[in-house]
Every structure is written in structure tokens, then in C-alpha cells.
Simulated scan of single mutants.
Amino acid sequence: MSILTITKDNFDSEVINSDKPVLLDFWASWCGPCKMVSPIVDEIANEISDIKVGKVNVDEEGELAQNFKIMSIPTLLVMKDGKVHNSTIGVQSKQNILNLLK
């Protein structure tokens, strides 16, 4: 499965109106911990077909980051039916991220 680049322009169609849960990774290119989480998120995207995975670059999508009150990155959100179902901040193990999706 491909990783979606989430922007304010495609947020409603890809996340709010998604028929699958969406794992959102809020990140930035300068963020060391984000670089540690990113390959894990990519792995999950390739292994689990019944979710969507999107990445939100907080430097380019400040409005989305503000809407979700993102104060620290990496922040992972699980969205279901247009609402935040689960979230975590900081570097997480693959198992912790998978547990968020349950």
C-alpha cells in the first residue's frame, strides 16, 4: 500500500471520509525521532491492507498540525469515522503502534 501525503486539500477526502481507519504520522524533515518512526510506519503500511497510512509534514501543513494541537513530533493519530480514536507522541515500537490500531 502506498503512503499518502496528507494536506489540508486532501484531508477530508482521504481521512475524514475514509472507510478505513487512518494512521497519521505528523513529522518534519529536521526531526531526528521522526526519522526513527518513519520506517516503522512504512513497514506497517506495507503489512496491513485494511488501514490507510498518511504522513503530515508539520512545516508544510501548519494548519492541520494546529487543528490537532500537535505540540511535539512525531505524533501518531489513528482516525476512525472522522474522529481521533487513538494517539501517541514520540518514538514508539512497532508493537505499540500496532496496538494503537486495535
Rank of each mutant, 00 (worst) to 15 (best):
residue 22 V to L: 10
residue 93 S to T: 15
residue 42 D to W: 05
residue 39 P to T: 14
residue 48 I to N: 10
residue 47 E to I: 12
residue 92 Q to I: 08
residue 3 I to S: 02
residue 79 M to Y: 14
residue 56 V to E: 04
residue 18 S to C: 09
residue 36 M to K: 10
residue 53 V to T: 14
residue 29 S to F: 10
residue 49 S to L: 10
residue 102 K to E: 09
residue 66 Q to G: 00
residue 94 K to G: 01
residue 68 F to G: 01
residue 28 A to E: 01
residue 40 I to H: 02
residue 5 T to N: 08
residue 56 V to R: 01
residue 20 K to Y: 15
residue 17 N to M: 14
residue 29 S to N: 15
residue 75 T to M: 05
residue 22 V to A: 00
residue 90 G to Q: 10
residue 43 E to Q: 00
residue 61 E to I: 13
residue 86 N to S: 08
residue 17 N to R: 12
residue 75 T to I: 03
residue 42 D to F: 11
residue 34 C to N: 09
residue 46 N to R: 08
residue 26 F to T: 06
residue 37 V to W: 05
residue 59 D to G: 02
residue 102 K to P: 10
residue 41 V to A: 01
residue 82 G to C: 04
residue 86 N to E: 11
residue 17 N to V: 09
residue 69 K to S: 11
residue 97 I to W: 13
residue 95 Q to V: 11
residue 96 N to T: 05
residue 35 K to E: 12
residue 40 I to A: 04
residue 13 S to C: 05
residue 59 D to Q: 14
residue 47 E to T: 08
residue 23 L to I: 12
residue 54 G to S: 02
residue 5 T to D: 12
residue 43 E to C: 01
residue 60 E to R: 13
residue 31 C to M: 15
residue 85 H to I: 09
residue 21 P to W: 14
residue 74 P to D: 13
residue 4 L to H: 01
residue 27 W to F: 12
residue 47 E to N: 10
residue 9 D to Q: 09
residue 61 E to G: 07
residue 24 L to Q: 06
residue 70 I to E: 00
residue 16 I to R: 02
residue 67 N to P: 00
residue 44 I to K: 00
residue 95 Q to A: 04
residue 97 I to G: 03
residue 100 L to H: 09
residue 88 T to K: 05
residue 52 K to E: 13
residue 84 V to F: 07
residue 33 P to Q: 08
residue 44 I to D: 05
residue 101 L to F: 15
residue 14 E to F: 12
residue 102 K to Q: 15
residue 72 S to N: 07
residue 81 D to R: 09
residue 91 V to S: 00
residue 89 I to W: 03
residue 30 W to I: 03
residue 4 L to F: 11
residue 87 S to Y: 10
residue 81 D to F: 05
residue 92 Q to K: 15
residue 33 P to V: 12
residue 77 L to R: 06
residue 40 I to C: 04
residue 30 W to E: 00
residue 60 E to I: 09
residue 43 E to S: 01
residue 69 K to F: 15
residue 81 D to M: 07
residue 65 A to H: 04
